[in-house]
Write a protein that binds this DNA or RNA. Sequence first.
DNA 1: AAATCGCCCAACCGCAGGACA
DNA 2: ATGTCCTGCGGTTGGGCGATT
Length: 382
Amino acid sequence: MIHHKPTIQNSSLLLSFPIFSHYNQESRMVRTPCCRAEGLKKGAWTQEEDQKLIVYVQHHGEGGWRTLPDKAGLKRCGKSCRLRWANYLRPDIKRGEFSHEEEDSIIELHAIHGNKWSAIARRLAGRTDNEIKNHWNTHIKKRLLKKGIDPLTHKSLLDGAGKSSDHPETSLEEDDQKSNNNKSSGSPSARLLNRVASRLGKRINHSVLSDIIGSGGPLISHITPPTSASEREKSTSSSSKPSPSNLLNNQNMNLDATSLSSSMFSDSSDSLMYENIFGDIEDMTGFSSRFLSDVVSHDDEDFLMLDESCLENTLFMRDLTMILQGDKIETKSFNDIHVTPLNEVDSFEGIDNYNCQDITSENILLSYDDDDENLASKSIRI
DNA sequence: AAATCGCCCAACCGCAGGACA
DNA sequence: ATGTCCTGCGGTTGGGCGATT
């Protein structure tokens, strides 16, 4: 089997053409058989076939795959054409080896989405689901197993501590070690973040979520735009209906703390809408639908975050960490107020004693009674 | 040098869900 | 309401190719 890659000429040629989403009304009127059994070529694509497909998509855009082979003069089924385009010929595909950062992202995303390769691919610019799936099965899975980590559950295959890495040479493994260390030591800062996120999560109501989905809202995209032309077209359409396509622009977002906090306190009773967008929010934040559901339904002060929303496992927590690290923490005892940059705080030991006393649009107030029965509190400005 | 083995990855297969007639 | 078609997804296959014997 001879595989050849699209030439630079092909790619640059493609980039010079706008790709329009194609909706062929005629093909809906007169339907053609799904796949002709005879005369269809299978196997590796030739350069000539690639060229035909590229030229066709340049002029007609993606879509209409069923009728594309005939129109483009290809002896292939539409499915094969779509796959060839999506996995190989598309101009925005990044080829070559996966970086450590990409591998780490894949592992993180796999922990959230499982074998939802398309969902993972949407968050990795230029990588296809097929490529990620292959890389996972041939490389990452083996590395995790070698380290004693179950690729399915992302948990250690061994019991007890200190069982981890024999291979400290990669960032992936370093991160895994850090992660294990955090878990085993029960990092106080992680617990703080969990508590804060828990309280923040409680305040996220459906109007905030609808803001997020409707107009970009308080969440700002910074990593991965939709990768295909059709997705770009969809995501910029004027549809007011919440959709995964709209959300693609907001995935892997940074949280804009000010706008988030200013909009998270309004109320609404439209729970139906809430249900419809749980899946989307799950994608965006890394919180499970179950957790989000609990966030909505619980009003008790002792609400606890679920395991899957802990620091190591969610993009949300990572973003929250970034916010807190870039902000300041105030330490005050009665009328004595000290302001300390959060990243200069030596330790969060004792943070378990704190209660999330209040959340305003600007601050999260943590308070506790110390051993001397003095009231102490920490206020994180958001 | 030839045969064999195992890895890699592009391509295929079958299924599911949504849209439309 | 039902059937058909279209598209996308995850799992699997099989051919190329380098490494090993």
